[in-house]
Amino acid sequence: MGIFSELLADISSLLSRYGWAYLNGIRNTLVLALAATAIGCVIGFLCGVLNTIPHARTDNPVKRFVLALIRAVIRVYVEVFRGTPMVLQAVFIYYGLPYITDKQVMFTNVWVSALVVVSINTGAYMAESVRGGIISVDPGQTEGAMAIGMTHVQTMMNVIIPQALRNIMPQIGNNFIINIKDTSVMFIISFTEFFAVHRAAVGATYKYFPSATIEMVGYLCLTLTSSFLLRVLEKKLDGSDNYELVNDDQLVMAAGNYNYPDKSSPFDERHKPSRDQVIQDVKIGKKRGER
């Protein structure tokens, strides 16, 4: 017990001294993860759409060449950024760019460079997810859209992408949660996110394990809240399970649709066993509906 009370004491002393710094770190982590996931999704959707432009052997050679080039470029982008650690990408972009361009091209703002690194990294992962999401939409949807005269772009924007987006929502959530954790490597370019605060606090107080405990709990809270919110969002995207019938003919409902049920039939409200049965059925049905 002594160890735990010591740990708690250390944690509370850390929090009283660095509480605001931790909170600030959490804010920075969240903002970076959110913004980078959003931009990454946009990049991913762009790549995914460009990747799935239909091409046939009968198209003219220029179009085929351009499409092949686009696919090759995207392929290289995806393979490079998916296949190297984000820490190194950050180093290359923040320190490497000024080094090889003789300070012609450089990011002076750590926010911007962190955002760029995490975004293009997320984009590389999302590109493949989006491609999968688009392929997974029933080809009949494309045919239905084409049959009413939609162009490829109209089909994509109105029919395919909304459905692909729904299909890859779990993937987007996945990436967001990964980003919350993985932005911790941005300390390498001295970006003050949640984990960087830990390094600062430990450097000053040598309370390594208590601070790590704070970090653990903090990250877990962030990710648990995120996954809960993502579930809610997915439910919302799915829309209601029920729908309202619209009766434009008022007389239909007004004209006596109610028939008095036979005695002791399941619909007889005066017959207690039947009534209980109905109530029971409704309960079970409700449970099923809620699943």
Binding site: Q141, E143, G144, M146, A147, I148, G149, V159, Q163
Partner: peptide, 21 residues
Amino acid sequence: PEYRSHVGMVFQSFNLFNNMP
């Protein structure tokens, strides 16, 4: 696409847009 807008089509598998009411 312009030509197809003059020629309606009804499919065996309906192909209604699943993302819209």
